[in-house]
Simulated assay, not measured.
Amino acid sequence: MKFCLRSVILLVTTVLMSNVSARNWKEGDGGLIRWDFDCNFNLHDIQFVPTLPEQCGGTCIANPQCTHFTHVGGTCALKRNTGSGFREDSLSGHTCGFVLNRSGQPFP
């Protein structure tokens, strides 16, 4: 019985982990955001703000509608995860991230 229960737990854990991004997210803004290089969150833009890359997470935190962000070329694109068609892609030269406890699905 113990072996069967362990097998079920392992299977459920494997399935749940398959939906988690494989990125090595870095912590920022006092632990309030996670971010990484060479990634982009597509669509669902709510605002474009000229910033330095290291200011983009804080800019997102300051906007209560913002759940995710992408920075490229001096502009921080604030995003809102609506749960429909929202995804992260690898894209060289971009920096992306999300606000913890605000990001919803499908990302952490």
Rank of each mutant, 00 (worst) to 15 (best):
M1D: 07
M1Q: 05
M1T: 04
M1G: 03
K2S: 10
K2W: 08
K2Y: 11
K2V: 09
F3E: 15
C4W: 15
C4H: 14
L5Y: 09
L5T: 03
L5K: 04
L5W: 06
L5V: 08
R6C: 13
R6V: 14
R6G: 13
S7N: 10
V8N: 07
V8L: 08
V8I: 06
V8E: 02
I9K: 03
I9N: 07
I9S: 09
L10Y: 07
L10A: 15
L10E: 14
L11G: 12
L11C: 13
V12E: 11
V12I: 15
V12G: 11
V12A: 10
V12R: 07
T14S: 11
V15K: 02
V15S: 00
L16Y: 06
L16I: 14
L16N: 10
M17S: 10
M17V: 10
M17A: 12
S18I: 13
S18D: 02
S18W: 01
N19Y: 08
V20K: 04
V20F: 00
V20W: 01
V20I: 11
V20N: 01
S21F: 05
S21T: 15
S21W: 10
A22L: 04
A22K: 05
R23Q: 06
R23L: 13
R23D: 12
N24I: 02
N24Y: 01
W25A: 09
W25F: 12
K26M: 07
K26T: 00
K26E: 11
E27D: 13
E27S: 13
G28N: 06
D29I: 02
D29A: 15
D29R: 04
D29Y: 04
G30L: 03
G31T: 00
G31E: 00
G31Q: 03
G31Y: 02
L32D: 10
L32F: 01
I33H: 01
I33F: 01
I33D: 09
R34F: 03
R34N: 11
W35N: 08
W35D: 08
W35H: 10
W35I: 02
W35C: 04
D36N: 12
D36G: 03
D36M: 06
F37C: 01
D38C: 03
D38L: 06
C39I: 08
N40P: 00
F41M: 05
N42S: 10
L43W: 09
L43V: 03
L43T: 03
L43A: 12
H44F: 09
H44N: 14
D45R: 05
D45N: 10
D45G: 03
D45K: 04
I46D: 06
I46P: 07
I46E: 08
Q47S: 08
Q47P: 01
Q47H: 09
Q47W: 12
Q47M: 11
F48W: 11
F48I: 02
F48E: 05
F48V: 08
V49H: 09
V49I: 13
P50W: 14
T51M: 00
T51C: 06
T51S: 00
L52G: 04
L52T: 14
L52W: 01
P53E: 06
P53Y: 11
P53L: 07
E54R: 06
E54K: 03
Q55G: 00
Q55K: 08
